[in-house]
């Protein structure tokens, strides 16, 4: 669990941390979309440097980001290899049955590789620098227009924030149940796969039961505290938009302009 970086929050005090969650979410999504329109090495160089700059501004060590990529590296390399082998054009270096390695293919493979890495980096920046609740609020704010269509956006956001709040509880509880089993002589991490799976059953069942019980009690509390689905309610957590947030979005516009210029002039 400890090695999973993507989706974690790293408390820190940086310009990126202080940006509004809505601005960060929109900018990150936009940036990822933009990556798919770049078809020139220079364009990738440019957005790559931009990403490195943003990562630097979070004041989080580079090694943390690298750790985020590590579990996915084989998948990425595989995808890039596929693109290399199945793309023809340009100067052909090796040709073997349906596979070719060509100059065009090498470029496309490199682009694919870059695209994946940058997507992971930028989403890691987003989650490392934004509290999960803030992210939930941002999603809530951005989906607001859907409320007019009768989509229960608020319920969805609350559900998300409650789930996030329960992850540590669930981990604690797993630990407790495992300790209780250990105290009764169960040894985890030994035996065949089937044996190990069997040992998980007495962990999962109590967890399931206690979660259901918990959910029921929480529903009661929400009920007594007058939570009503679809009812108008105020929000204690306020997102505040600063000039820096507008600047962040303007930078996305600037980046788009650069990508367009590079795409059309450097053919």
């Amino acid at each position: 669990m400890k090695s999973l970086i993507l989706g974690r929050y790293f408390p820190n005090d940086s310009i990126i941390h202080r940006l509004d969650a809505r601005a960060k979410l929109v900018a990150a999504l936009y940036f990822i979309g933009l990556l798919f329109f770049i078809d020139h090495g220079l364009g990738y160089l440019f957005v790559g440097l931009f990403t490195l700059g943003v990562m630097y501004l979070t004041k989080i060590r580079l090694s943390v980001f690298i750790k985020g990529v590590r579990p996915l590296i084989f998948l990425i390399l595989f995808a890039a290899m596929m693109r290399v082998l199945f793309t023809g054009g340009g100067e052909v270096f090796v040709s073997w049955g349906p596979f070719t390695i060509s100059s065009q293919g090498l470029w496309v493979g490199l682009f694919t590789f870059m695209r994946f890495i940058l997507i992971i980096f930028i989403s890691t920046v987003l989650t490392l620098s934004t509290k999960p609740v803030d992210l939930t609020d941002a999603i809530n704010a951005l989906l607001k227009p859907l409320r007019k269509l009768g989509v229960p956006v608020d319920d969805f956001a609350l559900m998300l924030s409650i789930s996030l709040r329960f992850i540590p509880n669930l981990l604690d509880e797993t630990q407790r149940v495992m300790d209780a089993q250990r105290a009764r002589g169960v040894i985890f991490g030994e035996g065949t796969i089937v044996e190990q799976m069997k040992k998980l059953v007495p962990i999962v069942l109590p967890l399931f039961a206690s979660s259901l019980n918990r959910a029921e009690e929480m529903a009661d509390v929400m009920d007594v505290k007058n939570y009503q689905s679809g009812e108008k309610r105020t929000h204690f957590r306020q997102l505040t938009w600063h000039t820096s947030d507008s600047i962040a979005l303007l930078m996305m516009v600037g980046l788009t302009a650069v990508v367009i210029v590079v795409n059309y002039t450097m053919v």
């Binding site: 409650i162 929480m218 108008k232």
Partner: peptide, 20 residues
């Protein structure tokens, strides 16, 4: 199981939010 929100102050505010 009474803690609904993700932080202390948010939790105290939960009932107030519902009363708009």
């Amino acid at each position: 199981n009474q803690f609904i929100a993700t932080s202390v102050e948010d939790d105290v505010a939960f009932g107030l939010e519902n009363l708009n």
